[in-house]
Design a protein around this nucleic acid. Structure first.
Lengths: 120, 120
DNA sequence: TTGTAAAGGATCATAAGTGATGCGTAATGC
DNA sequence: GCATTACGCATCACTTATGATCCTTTACAA
């Protein structure tokens, strides 16, 4: 309950660091060493350390660690089913969309809020 | 709504594929092209395609896409605070643990089979 | 049906993550 | 205090992801 950053505004680096710390807290609360957790997850201790330290790793390694910590159910909860957001499903025709279609007029049409950013 | 795999037993590859598909569904439900989403996320379209196709990408790229889709709050919900699991916090002395300590005897001690370590 | 562009796939040079190893430090148990 | 060892850090060879660019297919709106 110390490093509770604001995930809504934090940078990807900050988020990854927060995720790493949280995972580390969980690991420690269960008194599992990086070595053992790494072995269970199928990654190296180096990768475990990198995750703990907030450095980015591959999504695959991340998922493996989540699995090793028995947190896969949380991974499932990570992504909401589009169906539960009716407002997003308003399809022009109502059919299942397989491709996005845009009247390449103005990029700001589908309003991402307001940021016209590009590379940060 | 169709590919609802069991995150508890699925392989990391299957999980990543599921995550990719789900993210793609969300993207399409909002009628956003891979190109535009990639641009917003700060990654290349190649990476976006790989994610959609279920191939692994870096955790950093993944988080960026989540941010672009305004799903960071779900990322926060991804990791439970250890404090909410009292059973996991039973520290030998009660202090804050900074390192795991194990009587490197048998790895099966802390039971990953069914984690009945602390007798709940 | 037709025009358009969204998306998949392949390639390639570059960037980045991975695992193994060694080492110094410090947390923790005794 | 003392022994143990978890952990952070650095390096290095290897593997993999990334981004740019190409081409091809096809969803979809007009």
């Amino acid at each position: 309950m110390k490093h509770n950053i604001d995930f809504s505004t934090a940078s990807s680096e900050a988020i990854i660091e927060a995720l790493g710390k949280r995972l580390d807290e969980i690991r420690l609360s269960r008194n599992i060493s990086q070595f053992d957790l790494a072995r269970e997850a199928g990654v190296s201790r180096s990768t475990m350390t990198r995750l703990s330290c907030g450095r980015t790793i591959s999504l695959d390694s991340f998922v493996r660690v989540m699995q090793a910590l028995r947190l896969t159910d949380h991974l499932a909860a990570l992504l909401p089913d589009p169906a539960v957001r009716p407002v997003d499903r308003v399809r022009i025709g109502g059919a299942e969309r397989r491709r996005a279609r845009k009247r390449r007029a103005e990029p700001s049409e589908w309003a991402w809020g307001d940021e016209g950013e590009n590379g940060a």
